[in-house]
Design a protein around this nucleic acid. Structure first.
Length: 260
DNA sequence: TGTGCTGATTGAACCCTTAA
DNA sequence: TTAAGGGTTCAATCAGCACA
């Protein structure tokens, strides 16, 4: 009945407890706690041996609207569809703020802000047949080595560089699919940012200067190409890092000697 | 010059321990 | 009891190096 007439869903006065848990990540314990504090109006409906817990929609929405309603990182993770370990990463990236309550020893988050982040980063709802791309977790497994993180995915989504798709209008990050072409472009941005901050690797330098590996080593030995940082790996190998400015000046030198 | 090998690296997920 | 924190695992790519 609700599938045929979705507007009937909106008209309901009461929501099921399990419905609230899956759509908003609120734990059953939290609902009981809010009910005891009279923050939400929860009624028990008994039919035979089946017990139903129903929450008044208006009281629930009022409780959510209030900034008083703070949630733990675990609840935020449930709401976003990510692991609890990822929540601090979103906080560190400035995508979520934490609050302190005298009654709690834990850092808490605003339910409103978590919901807002999810709404901003939820994929565009399309038909299941039109879904393409990688799930959030698969994208992270594939591209974590390139510096892609859950925080970066959210940043890029907010900036419009990533346009995820979903077939669930109330879905969370696990239901988002990311287009591979868009992910590749974001990886390029991350790489450029890293090169600016950390520097170029020898392979990057070879490509920029258009020289072979042999020539690169000759230049290093001759002191023409001087690494700005040498990281000695555990197995004795060296990892060379060249600052962007070092390579830029070499490119200029190479170009002027070519034109002369 | 090209190719293949090895170990490092990355970050989320997972699992276990700790602390209040 | 439960959230947080720390260590480990997983899957993938990359850089350095050796060698044909």
């Amino acid at each position: 009945m609700f599938k045929k007439n979705p507007e009937l869903l909106e008209q309901r006065d009461y929501l099921r407890k399990d419905e609230i848990r899956t759509t908003n990540g609120m734990s059953y314990a939290k609902m009981t706690q809010l009910s005891e504090l009279n923050e939400i109006d929860m009624v028990i409906s008994q039919k035979g041996n089946k017990t139903k817990y129903l929450v008044n929609k208006r009281s629930y929405n009022d409780a959510l609207d209030s900034m008083k309603y703070l949630i733990t990182k675990k609840e935020a993770a449930l709401m976003l569809g990510i692991q609890k370990d990822s929540v601090p990463k979103l906080i560190a990236a400035g995508l979520l703020k934490t609050y302190r309550k005298s009654s709690s020893r834990f850092e808490l988050l605003s339910h409103t802000e978590v919901k807002q982040l999810m709404d901003e980063c939820r994929g565009k709802v399309v038909d299941t047949r039109d879904i393409k791309g990688l799930r959030l977790h698969d994208a992270l497994i594939t591209y974590s080595v390139n510096g892609l993180s859950i925080a970066k995915i959210n940043h890029f989504t907010r900036e419009g560089l990533l346009n995820p798709l979903t077939d669930n209008e109330n879905g969370n990050f696990t239901q988002n699919y990311y287009i591979e072409d868009e992910l590749t472009k974001c990886i390029e941005i991350i790489k450029k940012e890293k090169q600016l901050a950390v520097g170029y690797f020898l392979k990057d330098v070879m490509a920029i200067l258009k020289i072979s590996e042999k020539k690169a080593w000759k230049w290093i030995e001759a002191g023409i190409l001087v690494p700005d940082q040498v990281v000695i790996l555990k197995d004795g190998r060296n990892r060379y890092l060249f600052a962007k400015s070092t390579i830029d000046s070499l490119v200029i030198k190479k170009n002027t000697s070519n034109t002369a």
